[in-house]
Amino acid sequence: MSLWEYANPARFMATSGAVLPWVSALAALALTAALVWGFFFTPDDFRQGATVKILFVHVPAAMMAINAWIMMLVASLVWLVRRHHVSALAAKAAAPVGATMTLVALTTGAIWGQPMWGTWWAWDPRLTSFLILLLFYLGYMALWAAVENPDTAADLTSVLCLVGSVFAVLSRYAVNFWNQGLHQGASLSLAPGERMDVAFRLPLYLAMAAFVLLFLALVLARTRTEIRARRLRALMARERAG
């Protein structure tokens, strides 16, 4: 059976309806476990104290902020090439989730930054990049909201997502060039040297998995809602056409 069969709305509704409760339950379980583990069963950092524990929210949220955009990019390409409606609707459904993740990453970053750097906000390249990413999300969502015809909206937002991806990457480099920044380097890099302790790393991996599941559950639920909204439109159009 081809993977594309799931792109049929009826097929997608049946499958996602069966899968969604499990994904949601798993996401809740993993999230609870990761956060309880991370907050209560890890040692305090020798320099940062207990504040470091916000990383179990901050890092996975930041990761999903970027992954959500990548998912939207893939879904947009699938829509443009194969014209599967579910794909376009999944991209639409993912955008607010991604924007929220970006906001969570920014907020937790500010809360973490206050005791660490002594300021809520610094124009650090990473923070700035995420702020710009948030603007891209806002523009994308506003375009979806402004165009009345759903297929036209799907086409236009897909093109915007493609072009936006290129410019988001360019912005990242531009911002890096613009300010070298306070932010620590990637904490999970495979390079030897300053690596995170296993006591932190394992709950962090779990938290990341939990955020992936959470994202999946939210996007599935939102895509189902979008499909129902489209069905409603279709039925109303049918009624009008009489």
């Binding site: 049929n8 009826a10 489209r230 279709a234 049918r238």
Partner: peptide, 14 residues
């Protein structure tokens, strides 16, 4: 009479 994307959407059991 068939609606907006009807082939894809009107048949969905929701």
């Amino acid at each position: 009479p068939a609606g907006d994307g009807a082939d894809d959407f009107a048949g969905v059991r929701a």
